[in-house]
């Protein structure tokens, strides 16, 4: 069969909403796009453990500490499912991780912002996980089977994450004047970076058209961003916080919120590595990996020894 014919069958499957599975034929570019996207998603989960992990030892109550630990552990679990999904595309976890450490692979820029106060942990749950869920709900119906299934598992846990974030903030909103100020300050700092999570404007997005045709993506960056603003603007009323955008207001005609312009200069700078914590995050990942090398080597050496001994025992028997 010619490549053109294979491509036709492939696109036809996608058009009929049949999921693509690892052993199916797929265009090289589809495979590459998925490897890029899924590994980026996996890295985001793993790097995302750092800003939140920053508050585990300082969580203000034992209950909050337990919830935060469980949450950060969930992110590690998501990373595992996603690395497993990339492996179905023919790339090893080690290779994927090396690409992160060399700077070749990216992760979500949002994790390049620092968590300065406890309210930031709430804001991450509410805004960052809130934004991530919209994306991941869409990805539950993505055309590649293993990625779709990984997202279904992830979404179940993410909705709990968003709720715990909102709950942290709700308690602060009913607290002392200092706690209310802490809440507003966190929202002020996390609002715009959260909007940036949806990526460049549709008109600027390089990967979107092809991804839409392949049904990897089913909603555009701008559509998802609008959905996010409409959701958060309502929830902000319950928290009695002001979203830091003077142009944000309800448009009765369009039945959606209008809002101001994202600082795209900041967006591109953080993507390029100039965010407040780009270097620290990558350094922390590399350090964990390097310091763990002897442990991984020892585990492998021990497993090899075991195997050798067992084989000898079988021979003797």
């Amino acid at each position: 069969m010619s490549v053109q014919e294979l491509e036709k069958i492939f696109q036809d499957k996608i058009d009929r909403e049949v999921r693509i599975e690892p052993k199916d034929w797929m265009p090289d570019a589809y495979r590459k796009t998925l490897i890029r996207q899924i590994s980026q998603h996996a890295h985001s989960e793993i790097v995302g453990m750092l800003p939140e992990g920053n508050w585990i030892t300082r969580a203000p109550s034992l209950k909050r500490k337990a919830i935060l630990l469980a949450k950060v552990q969930d992110e590690a679990g998501h990373g595992l499912y996603l690395y497993a999904a990339t492996e179905t595309l023919g790339i090893t976890r080690e290779q994927t991780i090396d690409d992160l450490h060399s700077g070749k692979a990216k992760y979500s820029s949002i994790f390049n912002y620092p968590t300065i106060t406890w309210a930031d942990i709430g804001a991450i749950g509410w805004l960052v996980d809130g934004a991530a869920i919209l994306n991941q709900v869409m990805l539950c119906r993505t055309s590649y089977g293993p990625y779709a299934r990984a997202n279904i598992r992830i979404c179940k846990e993410e909705s709990f994450h968003q709720r715990q974030g909102f709950e942290i903030l709700l308690v602060l909103s009913q607290g002392t004047p200092e706690q209310k100020a802490m809440l507003q300050d966190a929202v002020d700092r996390w609002w715009w970076p959260s909007l940036m999570m949806f990526g460049p404007r549709d008109s600027e997005s390089t990967h979107s058209d092809q991804s839409t045709q392949w049904k990897i993506k089913r909603k555009s960056n701008d559509e998802l961003r609008q959905q996010f603003v409409d959701m958060i603007a309502e929830q902000a009323k319950i928290l009695q916080v002001t979203l830091p955008d003077p142009e944000l207001k309800w448009n009765a005609e369009k039945k959606q919120y209008d809002w101001g312009e994202i600082d795209w200069n900041e967006f591109w700078n953080v993507v390029k590595g100039n965010g407040p914590c780009n270097k620290q995050r990558l350094d922390a990942r590399k350090k964990a990996h390097d310091n763990g090398a002897w442990v991984r080597e020892a585990a492998k050496a021990y497993a090899d020894k075991r195997k050798e001994r067992e084989e000898k025992e079988i021979k003797v028997a």
Binding site: T57, L69, V72, A76, A284, A288, G292, R296
Partner: peptide, 11 residues
């Protein structure tokens, strides 16, 4: 818990 996010291997 200081290790969380810094362990030698994800598992």
């Amino acid at each position: 818990s200081e290790w969380c996010g810094h362990g030698p291997v994800l598992e």
